[in-house]
Design a protein around this nucleic acid. Sequence first.
DNA 1: AAGATCTACAACCGCGTGTAA
DNA 2: ATTACACGCGGTTGTAGATCT
Length: 232
Amino acid sequence: MVCEEEGCGPYMKKGHWSPGEDERLYTQITNYGVGTWSSVAELAGLQRSGKSCRLRWMNYLRPNLKKQPISKQEEDLIISLQKVMGNRWSAIAARMPGRTDNDIKNYWNARIRKKIRKTDVKVHISTEICQNESVSYKKSSRLDLDKAIHHSTTTLHNNSCSVFEAPPGLQAFAGQLSPDYDCVSAKQNAVEQSKLPTLSSIPESNKFDLVDEYVNFLMSLPDVVPDIYTWN
DNA sequence: AAGATCTACAACCGCGTGTAA
DNA sequence: ATTACACGCGGTTGTAGATCT
């Protein structure tokens, strides 16, 4: 098979790596390190793209990778982190020593997503003005969450809704929560009173502009992770 | 026993970002 | 400011082995 991607030579090999190729790559990197990945491929005498060498090293050959199956504790951690960070697999992997982003992504796609897909997140936007609007999104898809967020914020910013019925976590991702916002109490109150939180009291200056800021905020408050997957 | 289907995981691809010239 | 290049990321596909019918 010939690699036709940009930067590949005409005779680049593709597909699964042989033990011999692994040996060459491992020896090259452990003896001489990585300058640029394309030079590693050349110096190791491999007819592979630099990109392919990097992937093989990062996901399979480099030291300290865990080869055993993902444990229940690790699965719980993946679920928790995915709730907060979305599909930012490399960021999740950075918090799980010995696991690669590819490991986690594959595990998520193969197992966890199937479990979670059984129920939907329902996002309702209702007032006198838009009481007929009801939007349901599949919880497992970040793209669909993005759609939900976009729909909700657009509606709010157009002043066509005064009340936003959505999980606090989703509101936060939409940049609507202040750092002082109490997700747990908001949810509890909503459930007890059948009444969902309004946004009018949130100071403009306290809105989150970046998802990262929100993620860091949540990570500093591990017990206040918004449960966007079980909210109904 | 054999073909179909499922599962896990390896690898590819396209795109965005950072950096140096 | 622009361009070219390398890298890293996330989505997707390919494949081999296991399991099912």
